[in-house]
Each structure stands twice: as C-alpha cells, then as structure tokens.
Design a protein around this nucleic acid. Structure first.
Lengths: 346, 346
DNA sequence: TTGTAAGCGTTATCAT
DNA sequence: ATGATAACGCTTACAA
C-alpha cells in the first residue's frame, strides 16, 4: 500500500494519540487506558504495523537482545560436535529468560578479517576455546564495553571463564587404567592447533589448544612416556585412523582418548584388528556423550556436563548484563567406568 | 577513563574535524586526505574509540548485517543433525560475501511466544521446515518488509522456496529395490509431527512434516502397501529401534529408510539379528551423508547436496537484499548405489 | 493517564 | 575534501 513502512508515529497519528503513548502500548511498561490501547492497536492493525523497529529500539535502549557466540572453527564443524551441541543447548536455555537470540560468528583467517564481531549489534559475547584471535577479540569487545565470557580458554584475569578440570579428570582416567595393571599405554589427543596436523606429539608445550594440552598433561602425570597421537578433529573416523596407527607393531594394552568419539573410533580399529575390548585392549574416552551407534559398548569415560557448561556461560552473561558480578567457574568431570576397560591381558 | 563511552562526535572534536568527516574515515566510502585520516585515527586511538556503534549505524543505514535462521526444533537438535549442519555450512558460505552474521532462532511453544523473531534486528530470515508457526512467522516478517526464504516448506507463492525432489528421489530408490526383485519391503520414515510419536503410520495424509510425507509418497508409488514405521528423530539409535521392530516375525527383504542415519541403524539391527547386508537384507538411505563409523558399508542412497541447499537459501537471501529477484529452486537428488542393496534372497 | 521534548550515535545529502 | 544539517524510529524523563 504505502510506499513507506509505517512507524510508531504513523500509528499514533492514526490513533489520535502521541507517539509516546503508542510506544507505551507496545512496551507495556506503563499503564494505559483500555480505550487508548484499543485505539492504538486498531490503528496499528490498519496500517500493518507489527511493532517497534528493533534497530531503533536497540539504539534507544542500548540493548540489542542478542548474544554472540564466537567459535574458533568453521560453523559447520561446530554443528558437528556433540559436545558443542550440548553446550549450545545449555547456553540457549540460560539465555531464554532474557529472550536473547544467539548470533553465531566464527573467526577464520587473520585477526583483522573478523568484521562481524565489531560490526554486529550484540549485548554480550561468549568465546569458545582460545587462541590469538580470541585475545584480540576480547580486547575489542572490552573497549566497547561488551561483556565477554570465555569457555575453556584464558583471556586474562578480567574475563570470566567457564573451565573444566581437564588435567585432574584425565589423570583420573589414567590412574584407573594404571590400577588395572596397564603399562603399555598410548594416548589419542584432540587437535594441536588451527592447522590440525595429525601425528605424534613431540613437544607438548607447543600445543596451542588448551584443552588438548591440559588433558595430555593429566595423562602424562601418570604415564610420562606414553606416546601421544594428535588427530585432526574429534570424530569416530579420526579415532579409527589414530587407532590403526597405534595398534600396529608392538601395540599398547590400553588407549586413552581425549574424546568419546575418538575412543569409539579406536574401538572400531580394535575390532578391525580382531582385538576384543576390553579383553585385549582397554579404551577410555572423555566427555560422557552418547555415541550414536556405539552400543553395546559403554565407554569408560569422564563425564562432563556440557549442557551445564553452556548454561554457566549463559548465566554469566545474564549476570553481567544485569550488572551483577559473574562467577568464573570450574566444572568437574565425573569418572564413569563402563565396559571398555579391564585388567591388563595376561 | 571517561564516564561515558566515546562517540564519533567526541573523536571528531578531538581531531578537530566534523562528525561526518570522522564517519567517512571509518566507513571509507569517500576519499579523505591522509592527514585528516591520520588525525581522526589518532584521536580515536586516544579516546579508545573502536569504531561506529553498530546499533546506530544500523538504524541509519537500515541494515543490520544479520540474517536469522529459524529452526522448527530446539537448537540443540539442529546442532545434532548432519544434514542441517551441512546446510548451515553452505548457508554461511553464501552469506560470507555480504559479511552477515547468522542469528539462530527457534520456535518452541505457541505462536505468540516467539518474541525474538519480531524483536531481533535482522535483514532477512531463512525458515527451515514448515508448520503452522512458520506460516505466521512469514506473515509477520512479510509485513516488516523482511525478505524470507523457506527451505523445504511451503509458505505461499510469494515466498521463495528451496525444495528437494523428495517424491521422485524416494521413488527412484524404491524402483531400484523393486528392480532387484524385492516384494516384501518396509519403510522407516522421519518424524510425523512436532510431538514425534514412534510407530506405524496409519494415515499418511495426517503427517504434518512435508519431507516425511513426500518421501513416503514416493516410496508408496512403487510399494503401495509397504508398512511404514515413523521414528522420533533422525538418528542411528532410532533407526536401530525401528529396525528391531521391522525385523521381527516375517521380516522384509528390503528396508527403505528416509535418512542415512536411520539406514545405518537398520543395518545395525540387521547385524544384531545375524542378518547380512545386503545378502539377507537390502537397505537404502537418504541424504548421502558420510555416516561416521559406518564403514565398510557404503549406503545405497539418494545423495542430496545439503551444502548446496544451504547455499541456495543464502544466495536467495543475498539476492533479495540486493533488490534482485530470488529464484525458487528445486534441487535434485542423485541416486547412488552402494553395497547395501542386492538381489532378493532366494 | 497522556503529551512534550530531548536525545540515542550514526550517516546521507547537499552545499561549500 | 570537508562541513552543516537533517533524518533514522524509538523511548523515557518530566510535565501536565
């Protein structure tokens, strides 16, 4: 009909009231007489006005109703990892009370090529994992006065963190394996850095990904000399590939994997090699997810509450947005013995 | 330092130029003398100004730099489905040129409880799947003048759609199975509706989910009387459960599943029952994804290019945002014969 | 309960 | 190349 989209002023004029009154009808902040409300609503209906323009409201109120989640990886990868999925679940849950949408961003390429993070109208940001880009992102957001929470990464003392007791948890798994008598143990680790090279790890100090480094450290506290093979991604197929490598020659009697998906792949590699789990090979995972299709195996693993992790991040964001002090939090993994670990073969 | 966040006016004053000039330095739309640029940048640096406020810029320019994706399901489910993941991959790819962020929204609950869709500052929206809520969403967005694209759903003739030839593709699979001589065939379908009840389908016309209905129709064009069992989700474990049901008693010699994950579950059920695939049971999937851990099976399936689907949706959105006419598009699946189908057992 | 007025921070237009 | 001006559409003291 009209060449221009109707605004709240148009509605007010049509209804014969002031713009502020019309505004109040939509926001519901102040009481309005029923008659007035009806008039305004009727006018809105007539003009096809569907409510205040979020952009203008956002400018005025200073709130965008959007929380950004910055991923270290491609969004597609994020969509593929069950732990990330669970985390997003908790996150969206925690954000629901403030009705915030979730804006996905990812930082590919060099530092300055992430325009969306500085360009997007967001009230807060959650950063997932840590690397150099992340640190610079934190700086920009900090200067903007945008609250930031980091999950499993370190961006300095001023930024609230949601952490996992990766070192202790992985040590617990290793101790369990040792208690079963295993001496020859191999490790399958998550990615070393953004380039995702596969292969044995020579120098643990050069691992850029904190999670990988921490879990490796935990395992090495028990098995200082265990060989560690890094994969390119957390998936069954990558675990399978790693398992094939590690089960060649003089094979280990136990393999400690840094994720359940990797562990599931290792188990497949074992089956492929004619080995029984856990009679011939013990395998541990990490995460405590349900690996689709892994039954009847029940992984011995460290159960992390990824949903709680996401929820904690979400709640920290909500707290900051409400002016409260967010708590940094370290979540604890629970050891769960399944049927994939057993005594060292005679 | 200052109690108030620096604005572009502050920067301009500090630099001794006008606000518009300072603005131009950041937008880069018009040429500015090097000296002026340097002055402005220095002033910004001094004041800790990190660039224009996206909210204000958005109000002024009318662009938010954000595209919304509305899911039918919980976000967590979306993060779990490989096809959705691939679609998001293509989508983010297509959106990259315009540098738009992706805002995730989902419509749980009753129609009016989706405030974010009308509240969020977005330039366009992509709706995934179809149901009643979706139709009303389209209406609201339409009145707002926000371009909408629907993937695998129908929201009227004015809304561009990205479709799949589900009927034809599934019929092709069924014809392949028939050409192998199979007579006793069972179907495993995707969810019937939002309540996700499992069980045999009595009345196909009451299926709310278009994809499920179309693929079922395709299969029934070849096997009008084949029993169809609907699952609660597209996953290996759901396929396993369905397979167990269907392989009881006088079992079929072929099972046509509406997704690869379901097919993978059916194969596991077959293994569990001591049946060989394809010697004792033929199985077909749909999607053409790589099922993590399914090797050495290569599913006979319909390959859909989910990445292309997402990309098409993204491109349609870009086209609309640039004032061009977006094309509705029907993507075609490709039949791929793997090693999970064979002649009917003697 | 309703209206007035003053911005929120930016950028497009037009003039210089 | 730079500057003055006027929106963008809305919300919220404050006044009536």
């Amino acid at each position: 009909m009209s060449s221009r989209r109707a605004t709240i002023s148009d509605v007010a004029r049509e209804a014969g009231v002031s713009a502020s009154t019309a505004s109040v009808v939509f926001s519901g902040k102040v009481s309005v007489s029923d008659a007035t409300r009806a008039k305004v609503l009727a006018a809105a209906e007539a003009l096809g006005y569907t409510g205040p323009d979020p952009r203008a409201a956002s400018l005025r109120t200073g709130r965008a109703g959007v929380v950004a989640v910055l991923f270290r990886e491609r969004l597609a990868s994020a969509f593929r990892d069950p732990v990330t999925a669970a985390m997003m679940d908790g996150l969206t849950d925690a954000l629901a009370p403030i009705g915030a949408g979730v804006l996905l961003l990812h930082d590919e390429g060099p530092v300055e090529s992430a325009p969306t993070l500085t360009t997007a109208p967001v009230d807060a940001a959650i950063l997932l994992g840590c690397n150099e880009i992340l640190q610079s992102s934190v700086d920009v957001l900090g200067r903007r006065g945008i609250p930031v929470v980091v999950i499993e990464g370190d961006a300095g003392p001023d930024v609230p963190q949601i952490l996992l007791d990766n070192v202790e948890a992985q040590r617990t798994a290793a101790e369990h394996v040792r208690s079963l008598g295993h001496e020859r143990v191999a490790l399958v680790t998550l990615t070393k850095d953004a380039t995702r090279p596969r292969g044995f790890i020579d120098d643990p100090s050069r691992i850029a990904v904190e999670v990988t480094r921490d879990r490796l450290r935990g395992a090495r506290q028990v098995y200082p000399d265990a060989p560690a093979y890094a994969v390119g991604a957390s998936s069954i197929d990558e675990g399978l590939a790693a398992g094939r490598v590690l089960l060649q020659g003089e094979r280990p009697t136990a393999i400690i994997a840094q994720s359940d998906l990797l562990a599931a792949g290792v188990i497949r590699a074992a089956e492929e090699a004619g080995l029984r789990v856990p009679e011939d090979l013990s395998v541990t995972g990490f995460d405590g997810i349900t690996v689709d299709g892994l039954a009847p195996y029940a992984l011995t693993t460290l159960v992390q509450d990824a949903i709680a992790k996401g929820r904690a991040a979400g709640e920290a964001v909500v707290a900051m947005l409400e002016g409260r002090d967010p708590a940094s939090l370290t979540l604890t993994c629970t050891f769960r013995r399944g049927n994939t670990t057993g005594p060292v073969p005679a």
